[in-house]
């Protein structure tokens, strides 16, 4: 059964096309990687799915219901969790309060259940020891984990990860991919934008390549990376139109 479906989604900012006729489907528990050069429209695609920016055309369907015109908050409550490329912690709140908010609002939980959900998200991401520390005092790795923890605390069916491994050391990346792989076994679908391709390949079973708002390749990760379209994009020798 398809969990998330995009049908003919388009978005322009003035003359800049960030999404053009995007179509894809994601099944329950799937793990999809998204690669593409800078400015390809990867983050914009997340913003369209999570509701931060409205699509000009097309439909976003989640869990059998059209969510194209829903607010980001309603989408979070419906089961879409997202992280931001540059972490956006609630700095003056504690780490636990960060996830508690997500558990109570996005996760629609109350009382003790919200505590368990919030603390569980911290345990899954290895942040439980910092539960009572201020979120503003966290290092980059922990801020990235906190982004993930907050998304998980909303009790999502899918998490959208935006370059969550960027800027981390190799060891930190390995720790993070372990956490993300564990989500899959809990049945949470993952859509992951990443430049650290090695981390992606160890986790996803499908890869999608975006360029100038168009899907240029979609399929088995190794095949996608080996495809002429993706190779020439990353070698930078050809324009997208020629690649297509």
């Amino acid at each position: 059964m398809s969990l998330l479906q995009l049908q003919g989604v388009s978005k322009k900012f003035g003359q800049v096309v960030v999404a053009e006729e995007i179509n894809f489907e994601l099944g329950v528990g799937d793990a999809l990687g998204i690669v593409g050069p800078n400015g390809a429209g990867k983050t914009s695609l997340f913003a369209i799915i999570s509701g931060d920016i409205p699509a000009d055309a097309g439909e976003v369907i989640f869990d059998g219901r059209t969510i194209t015109h829903l607010s980001p908050a309603k989408r979070a409550r419906a089961g879409i969790g997202r992280t931001y490329q540059v972490p956006r912690p609630f700095e003056k709140m504690t780490v636990f309060e960060n996830t508690l908010l997500a558990a109570q609002q996005g996760g629609r939980s109350h009382g003790h259940k919200s505590y368990v959900l919030a603390y569980g998200a911290l345990e899954r991401t290895g942040l439980a020891d910092f539960a009572n520390a201020s979120a503003g005092s966290m290092t980059l790795l922990r801020r990235k984990r906190l982004e993930l923890a907050r998304a998980l605390a909303t009790d999502p069916q899918v998490v959208l990860l935006d370059e969550i491994a960027g800027g981390l050391t190799d060891l930190e990346v390995v720790e993070l991919t372990d956490i993300i792989r564990a989500l899959r076994s809990d049945g949470i679908a993952v859509v992951w934008i990443e430049h650290v391709v090695r981390a992606l390949l160890s986790t996803v079973d499908r890869l999608l390549c975006l360029a100038s708002g168009v899907i240029v390749a979609d399929g088995e990760p190794k095949e996608v990376l080996a495809s002429d379209a993706v190779r020439s994009l990353y070698l930078g020798s050809k324009r997208v139109e020629e690649v297509l």
Binding site: D52, P72, A73, A76, R77, E91, L101, A153, T154
Partner: peptide, 12 residues
């Protein structure tokens, strides 16, 4: 602290 993050965490 962060209005955008609050929205995507489910805050109306």
């Amino acid at each position: 602290d962060n209005e955008v993050a609050a929205r995507s965490a489910g805050v109306n």
